[in-house]
Structures are given as C-alpha cells and as structure tokens.
Design a protein around this nucleic acid. Structure first.
Length: 583
DNA sequence: GCCGTTTTCGGCCCGACTGTTTTCAGTCG
C-alpha cells in the first residue's frame, strides 16, 4: 500500500541512483530536497496526489515531481524510479553510504570493476584489484577498509540520549584547556534531533593547537581520522560502539558564524546563504561579508564582516529573527513569525510515572519526593493495567488498594499533589483495560497502546480515536509505540488523531524517554496545527528517568511547541480544572 | 528538477582536509 514514508524513501533513493549514474547534480539535489520537503509538509501529499497545483505549493516540489507523486499514489511506484532501479544495483547505495566513498568513486568502482555490493568491494580490496583504479593508493584503500568496518560496527545513527552525555563531558573537559574561551556542541545534537550522526564540538580559542591536542588525547579516543589546524576528527568509544566526534576551532570573534554553520542543518544553511546572496552578501563559517565576486574568501583578504560574533547579529543582518536551533530544518522557519518555544523550566508536573506496584523502582513517596525536589507541583502515579502482565500490571483489586495508598501518601507528603492514576492499556480494538466505573475513581487516566503495534494504519487510527473519544481519558501515552531505530510502531493517521484529540480535549503525549520520543517532532507539529494539547512525560520508572524530560522538551520544540499548549506547564489550578472536566 | 524583491532562462552555498599528484579531485559537513 502506498505510504508517505515509502514515497519519501523512493525519492531519496532516486537522488542516490541519479548521483551514481552521473546525472546533473542539481537534479540530484532537487530530488533530495523534494523528499525533505514532503517529510516536513503540513499537507498529506498522498491525499492531494490528484491535485498537482496543491502539491506544487510545497517548496521544492515542481511539475515533474508532482506528477511522480500522482503516479506513485496510483500505482505504488513511478516509471523513472523503476527504470533507474533496473539500471543501478541495490547494493551500490549501501556502498555509497560508507564514509569517504562518494558517487564519483563508487561509480568508477561499478563501471570499471563491476563492484555492486559491499562484499564485492571487500573482495576487490583483498585481491588487490581495487588498486587498478586511478587515485587509489595504499592509504585510500586502508581508509576504505577501515570505514567498512566502522560502518558495520557503528550501525545506524546514535540516539540523542547516548550522544548527549558524551558531548557534555567533552565540553566540560575541553573548557579547562588553556586559551579556550567559548565552547559548545553543535550539529544535530544542538538541534535536538532524535538521532545523531556524529558529535560536533566548536571552540573559540587563542591556542588552537592545545585544544586539538587535548581533544585527540581525550579518554575514549580510539582513532584519529583527521588532524588539521582548525579541524580534528576522531572516533570515540561509546558503549560497545563508536561514534565520530569532530572538533573545530575558530577565533573568538567568529564564534557566532561558526556556531551557526556547524549547527546546521545543512539545508537551513543553504537557505541562509541564498538569502545572503540576494542581499549582496556572502555567508560562510567566518561571518557574513559583502559579496565582491573575488575568488579568494573574504576573511583571507581582511574584508570586514557585516556580522560574525553572535548568531543573533547574523540573523538580524539578514532581516531575520534568531532561529532556535531546533527549528533549523528548512521547514519554513525563515518565513513568518516563529513560535515562542517551550523551555525546560516551564515543566511543572509529571503525569506518567510508575511505582514498585507495577514495574517501577520507587515507592509512591520516593516518586513524589523526587518530583518535589524538581519543583513540580503535581506528580501522577500511573502504574500499568492488568493486561500488561510482563510489567506486573495491577488487576482491579490491586488498583483499588493502590488508589488508597496514593490518597494516603497525598495526605502525608506536603508541597506536592499526588494524583491517583493509571497507564491503562488501549487494547487492540480500542477498548480500555478497566471498566468505566473503576476509571472514574482515578484522578487521571493515561491510555497507551502496548500490544498489537503492527496492526494496519486504518485499524490503528480507529483504535486510538476510540480511546480519545472515551470520556474518562486525559492523555494518550506514547501514541505510536515506536522505539527509535528498533520498532516502527503504529502508523495511524496523525492528522485524524490530532483532530479527535483537540475535539475531546485529550492531550497527546511526547514520551520523553530517548528510546521512544513518541510523539515525534513532525507529529507534534501536526497535533498543534489541529489545536490539540501536548503532554511531555518521562514515563518515570526510576529516579534518573526524570532527567529524560529534556529530550521531550527538545522534541516538542522541534515541533513548534509553546508552553501554553503543553499541559505539564499549566498551574496546579488549571491542570486540576482540566482533569476534573472529565470526571 | 526547481525557481524568481536582477523571473520563464540560467542560475543553483562555501571552505577544510586528505591523498595523490605536482596543481587538484573527491568528500564531508
């Protein structure tokens, strides 16, 4: 069945295959850009596949690609894709994903040595035939061999929750090095993306050499890939895997320009540069300069930049307001007003937490004390329901006792409200795991799907909507059940879910655990557009889980979430009023 | 293939580093 994600994948594949066949690089770029545009588009392209005008409203989609979308919606593929696919072996795209191998090299391997897969490439290395290619010396071959091993070992992208602690440790350690004035992590990590390709660290320093030496010598560095005057690249140990970490050093007064440049996204930067050129300016990682058509870069000729030391000055010089990193994805952030995004400090309540009654590690009181310590006014105790047997879900009798225990704790612990709730399973048919009489006794109901996570999108949509329409439900917990990089989860019609949620005053959860981040950023944007409220919850099982909230806030920010749209930022009174409206 | 505050053709972002070659192509971000 045609799906948006498959269409996007096909367009991305088109770009790779075109590259390999040596097509016009701007055409390649057009396909890659269209794929991104569709990913971030607010309209459902498949729904409007018969309306080319509507499709062409999406920036990056023109006549030709609009036709291909129509073709795909009708037949599940499009001719040009199938033609290229017949020509370009599947395995080559995988070969091209090896770091250091680009389209030119892979194409040469393919045409001259008939290399079509990573295994073919390994054989060509072993039997020495790879050396026959031009510009293919011993060192290059050794690097390729190493890169194959790395890509097999490092696997896919690293979840943000694994990369962030390492990045913060590096920033803390390198801050102490002689000459270092400003330091920050940049890249997709600063943008709060759910997964990270590599970690980028940026330093402004008066002693570049010292910084690069300290970096290369840092604990955990397993291989040095690049070491220049301004740029070093290493591979570091991260758990059982490795992650690439890049360090860039710049002068103090270029820190803003460099930070902007290395934060990306690449597409956002391209937009900014295009905008700069239209204003007779040129933007690079050293600053925003007047464009003068000279070949030598302006900073090397002592040209005075228009702006360079802070991001804000550069955006302003381009007649833009400063764009929060989380929004720098080329999803229209340079057009119109930006939302006043939610901040970590706005979070005042945790509404999804487990105790030792089900699968948590803390008692009700411990849970409450930790929440209080974080300055929260409310904590909801939401242990699992009876169907979650593996999680020691509570049957009706145990839940009734548990409610009593929560009420007692609420009397006893001062300075915080402890809500009696449940994370009740949404069964495969959309019914809930307890009867209404029992649910009505609870202060808060978080309804979540835990099983049947591979059901078809139509069933998933009606299942979730049924739960949303239930008059006693407040929050839909981790609505799709996905696990980042591991489990796809449900693929419901998020637009329909969001509309139902808005209509019935049900909040959709961003489960802040970095393994979940569910809703994801794009879903949040759709939910907000429909007028639905969002909950950011840590799904607390242990004390350290409270720290996950940062990832939920980042995800919310990426989706354009403001504090008023997030129930966890509301005052105790406002929260209570909403909860009671469903009782 | 897309696009237009120099518009329907002729552009399309910019610099660092590596390896191999000896002036630069390829890749990356």
């Amino acid at each position: 069945m045609p799906s948006k994600s498959e269409l996007i994948e096909k367009l991305e594949q088109m770009a790779s295959m075109l590259e390999l066949t040596g097509a016009n690089r701007f055409k390649v770029n057009a396909y890659a850009k269209a794929a991104r545009a569709i990913k971030g588009a607010s309209i459902d392209v498949l729904e409007h596949a018969g309306d080319p005008k509507k499709l062409e409203e999406i920036d990056g989609v023109g006549k030709s690609i609009a036709e291909k979308i129509a073709e795909y919606a009708h037949s599940g593929t499009f001719d040009e894709f199938e033609e290229l696919r017949a020509e370009v072996p599947d395995g080559l795209i995988r070969v091209m994903s090896i770091p250091g191998l680009g389209p030119k090299t892979v194409r040469l391997m393919w045409t001259d040595l008939k290399i079509e897969t990573v295994d073919d490439l390994k054989k060509a290395i072993d039997d020495g035939s790879l050396e026959d290619l031009p510009r293919m010396g011993k060192k290059t071959i050794a690097n390729i061999k190493d890169a194959i091993e790395f890509s097999e070992k490092s696997g896919e992208r690293t979840p943000i929750g694994r990369a962030m602690p390492l990045a913060e440790e590096l920033v803390e350690d390198l801050r102490e090095v002689k000459g270092v004035k400003q330091i920050a992590y940049a890249g997709s990590l600063r943008r709060g993306a759910e997964t990270i390709g590599d970690i980028d660290i940026l330093i402004s320093t008066s002693d570049s050499k010292a910084a690069h030496e300290a970096f290369a010598g840092h604990e955990g560095v397993e291989k040095i890939l690049v070491s220049g005057e301004t740029k070093s690249s290493v591979r570091m140990k991260l758990g059982r895997r490795q992650i690439q970490v890049d360090l860039r050093t710049v002068d103090h007064n270029a820190f803003g320009a460099a930070l902007m440049y290395f934060t990306g996204s690449k597409e956002h930067n391209v937009r900014l540069r295009e905008r700069a050129l239209k204003k007779g300016l040129t933007l690079n990682e050293y600053g925003l300069f007047p464009e003068d058509d000279e070949d030598t870069p302006p900073q090397q000729r002592g040209v005075k930049p228009v702006a360079c030391d802070t991001e804000e000055k550069i955006y302003n010089a381009l007649d833009l307001q400063w764009v929060p990193p989380e929004l720098r994805e080329d999803r229209g952030e340079l057009k119109g007003e930006l939302p006043d995004l939610i901040e970590l400090d706005d979070i005042r309540a945790e509404l999804h937490a487990h105790t030792t009654a089900s699968d948590g590690a803390m008692s009700i009181r411990e849970l409450a004390e930790h929440a209080k310590h974080r300055g929260f006014h409310t904590i909801a105790v939401t242990d699992h329901s009876k169907s979650s047997v593996i999680a020691n879900g509570l049957d009706e009798k145990r839940l009734r006792k548990h409610i009593e225990a929560v009420r007692a704790a609420n009397e006893e612990v001062k300075g915080i409200t402890i809500l009696a709730g449940s994370e009740v399973d949404i069964l495969a048919d959309g019914t809930l795991d307890y009867d209404d009489e029992l649910l009505a006794e609870l202060d808060i109901v978080v309804a979540s799907p835990h099983t049947g996570l591979s059901q078809d999108p139509k069933k998933a949509t009606s299942r979730l909507i049924k739960a949303i329409e239930h008059p006693l439900v407040h929050i839909i917990g981790h609505p799709t059940g996905r696990i980042v990089g591991k489990r796809e989860g449900l693929s419901p019609d998020i637009g329909a879910i969001a509309e139902a949620a808005a209509e019935h005053s049900v909040a959709l959860e961003i489960n802040a655990n970095w393994r979940r981040l569910d809703l994801r950023d794009l879903h949040v944007a759709i939910a907000l557009e429909a007028g639905a409220s969002i909950a950011i919850d840590c799904d607390v099982h242990a004390a350290s889980d409270y720290d996950q909230v940062r990832y939920g806030v980042l995800t919310g920010r990426r989706g354009g979430l403001t504090a008023p749209s997030c129930v966890n930022t509301w005052t105790a009174a406002k929260l209570q009023k909403w909860l009671k409206s469903k009782r």
